[in-house]
Design a binder for these strands. Sequence first.
RNA 1: CGGGGCGUGGCGCAGCCUGGUAGCGCGCUUGUUUUGGGUACAAGAGGCCCCCGGUUCGAAUCCGGGCGCCCCGACCA
Length: 432
Amino acid sequence: MPMRLSQSLIPTLKETPAEAQIVSHRLMLRAGLVRQMASGIYAWLPAGLRVLAKIEQIVREEQNAAGAQELLMPTIQSADLWRESGRYDAYGKEMLRITDRHDRELLFGPTNEEMITAILRDATKSYRDLPQILYHIQWKFRDEVRPRFGVLRGREFLMKDAYSFDLDYTGALLAYKKMMLAYMRTFQRIGVVAIPMRADTGQIGGDLSHEFHILAPTGESGVFYDAAFETGNAAAATNVEAFYEQMTSIYAATDEKHDQAAWAAIPDARKREGRGIEIGQIFYFGTKYSEAMNFAVTGPDGAKIFPEMGSYGIGVSRLVGAIIEARHDEAGIIWPDAIAPFRAAILNLRQGDALTDQICAELHNTLGADCLYDDRAERAGAKFAEADLMGHPWQIIVGPRGAANGQVELKRRATGERFELAIAEALAKVQA
RNA sequence: CGGGGCGUGGCGCAGCCUGGUAGCGCGCUUGUUUUGGGUACAAGAGGCCCCCGGUUCGAAUCCGGGCGCCCCGACCA
């Protein structure tokens, strides 16, 4: 269903609400993507939800391509499950604990290692049932002491979390490597530069972990990396092992893990220092949960095997904020093509003029649902300003000036380039 | 969890110190105007001034208590 701005709920703001400090938060509110409902809790409005859905879909396709299977686990979990792993007490106040009408203890899930382990424990009995990689894309809740930065540190957030189960270390490591490749492909398709960095394992446990950081001047962590990362092409990688070898042999670290000696060994011309926003993390943690929760399958010799596990997260809702931090200018958001709420906007500069109306309607019909038609009775300036704010990759500007000659103006948001083109040519460029 | 700040029309704010008819800009509605970078003029609509209690003839304003939100730090996907 093609969307007309005059009939859509895309409440843009000229002024920035006082609560928003950082640029992505301001732009998300101003562009009408989200509204805050409580501290760290957001409603996703139609345009924002479109972005979320597009990111989700890319993540989903790459997870599937890596051999992971999608399922959906609930947001509410039982406290008993978390007592099995010992994390019910260990997790602390970040876990939102609730009780139901029977005083049963429940919690709003901050992550799902326990639950997925319980599911596999019930459903797999033999070594023949492994390996498995499962994932879901579900809302999580962490009761942050201090939510801030809009969706970058919300309390409720959308995360893709995958879990791998293997019979031995080699298998687990292969799953880890597959996920690293899947992640790099995912971020490349989304249209951002992300760099894998050795990381601490924190709350999850284990001894092998990488964080993925998007480079943005406002990032929370200082990052150091080799310029070789800027030219990588995960889409072209054909060999998982070779790709992993390549990724882990190039230097990249957050300030916490920064190694002066290794850094000194890099030629100065290739040294890059900047700031990063973490948008994903992968962990290998062995049998930590399978043993604690007594999940074993029977091996070929009849002996118990505790599966080797890993978990793999992508902050889907956080990515929206992170991408805006990395891609904006004074006028507004600059969406990558793949995840913009709308690939193109049609700006009718003379609403009511028979010819411009007709051209706009044709364009709109041809481009369909991924295009937003600004058919409001607003001044040209207001339409330009809002289109820039919302960050549509393409703006098709239809005014009486060009319309008479069968021409429209095509503007590329990212570069500011403008082209005077025949209608068919403009369409071809947008649809390319 | 320590420190700081803020709650007044949809948004941004002033008024509070020194108690006395609730204001400004933007937005919204209607009309006219303008028509390629948030246009101009005119007329309108819209407020339990966060909540509860106290002081007072009288509270947005003073006092007490709550609640909510933001910022800095520690913490964290």
